[in-house]
Design a protein around this nucleic acid. Structure first.
Lengths: 136, 136
DNA sequence: TCTTGAAGCTCTAGTCGCTAGAGGAATTAG
DNA sequence: CTAATTCCTCTAGCGACTAGAGCTTCAAGA
């Protein structure tokens, strides 16, 4: 049996975050001691490691909730879980594409040759979208 | 003189967001009609366009506040504004690097060949960090 | 001049995924 | 038995808006 602090250390999820996951319904309410403290078992450890990993991969809480729900029904088609992962992959790729454009624009902007703000290229570039080389 | 709705249409910033910017101190409190409605001038239009553009480029409100503050003091060294832009560029590059790793990992995970959840690769990959090919 | 409907106003609360702090109770090592 | 540490609940805050309730003002047409 693990205390919440031990669970925290083993999974790398902070204590208040574990309690937050509980109240968000991502992990089951654990048993308690006589003194009302939470005690966790191995199933909780695994569940939390799963959540942690999925969060690290950038999945939202809602997506994780669905995956947990799916995991509880092994007879459902695999395509459902696959779909969630793929949707997320698509999101990530879109975010990368957007950030690449920003990177270009910023790299162009962040190279001022003036001396004082009055002649600063950065501010005028930010003021005037027309100076941009692509849409964003 | 523009109403808040006209200003919104011209800049692409939603009406409640304009009001929020005002209360966050990013734009000055505009004049009002007798009936207490906001009326904006060209300076407001330009300021808002500046904010919109900087937000589109992903700059945070705090950074924008600093840039506005800088813009009000044309004698200050240009390096200050340049620094803000460069710092942000660094952030963007780090985010891109992180997302690239996620993309790889997700692409590997999101390719299940099972039929039902029971044999689904996606869920087990998410449960087990050791299956990952790199840190994240 | 009157009416109508769009657009304006303020205020509060909600979003997401936590994080921080207050104030107190339980546990554990020495 | 004491002292240090960990635990408990509860509330509030972050960033950058967004949504809604309930009301007032404005502008155009009849």
């Amino acid at each position: 049996m693990l205390t919440i602090g031990q669970l925290s250390r083993r999974t790398g999820v902070k204590v208040p975050t574990i309690r937050w996951y509980e109240q968000a319904g991502l992990i089951d309410e654990p048993g308690r001691t006589e003194g009302n403290q939470r005690r966790y078992g191995n199933a909780d450890l695994e569940r939390l490691a799963f959540i942690r990993h999925a969060r690290d991969l950038g999945l939202g809480v809602e997506a994780i909730r669905e995956l947990i729900e799916l995991g509880a029904h092994p007879e459902r088609p695999c395509a459902d879980a696959d779909h969630i992962a793929r949707t997320h992959l698509k999101n990530v790729r879109e975010r990368i594409a957007r950030l690449r454009k920003l990177e270009k624009e910023l790299a162009r902007i962040a190279a001022c040759h003036g001396e004082t703000i009055g002649e600063c290229h950065v501010l005028s570039a930010l003021a005037d979208h027309d100076q941009c080389t692509s849409e964003h």
